[in-house]
Amino acid sequence: MSKMHVKLKVNGRQVEGLAEPRMLLVHFLREELGITGPHIGCETSHCGACTVDMDGRSVKSCTVFVAQANGAEIVTVEGLTNPDGSLGVIQEKFREHHGLQCGFCTPGMITRAHRLLQENPNPTEEEVRFGIAGNLCRCTGYQNIVKAIMAAAAELNAAKEAAQ
C-alpha cells in the first residue's frame, strides 16, 4: 500500500512523516516518533493504555488510524511534564498518592485524567471513577488513582484561585 504524508502537532511540536494510512496512531507515535509513553494493552479499545489527547479529546490511539489523525494536535503523557522537566501536577499527585505500580497504564491514565480535569475541574469521586472508566489498571485497584486525581483537582483549582 502506498504511504501518505502525515502532518501532526505532537506535544507542541510540528512533526511530519510518511506512513501507510492503516498505521495506527499509537504505532506512529511509538515507532516513527519515538514517543513511547502511550502503551498497547488490549488492542480492542478497552484498556486505555494508549490514551492520548487528540484535538482536545481523549482518544484511544490504538483504534485511530494515523490517516484519521492527520492534521490533528496530539498531547501524550510526555507533554504533561513541566517545561523545566519537573513533574506536572497530575504526575506529581500520582507519585505522591501511590497511584501507580507497574507504570504500564499510567501514561494513559494520566493523560485521561488531564482531559477529565479540563472537562470537569471539580469532579466528585463518582465523577472521577466514571471519567476514568475507559482506562484499566491491573495493579492499583484504582483507589489511589482516584485519590491522586482528586488531589490534583484541588491543587489545580487552588493555583487557579491564587492566580486570579
Binding site: 514517543i35 513511547t36 509513553g37 502511550p38 501524550t76 503523557v77 510526555e78 504533561l80 511534564t81 513533574l87 504526575q91 506529581e92 500520582f94 507519585r95 501507580l100 507504570g103 499510567t106 501514561p107 494520566i110
Partner: peptide, 8 residues
C-alpha cells in the same frame, strides 16, 4: 515513579 509518570 518519576520515570513512569512521564512515560519514560
Amino acid at each position: 515513579d518519576v520515570r513512569f509518570t512521564q512515560g519514560k
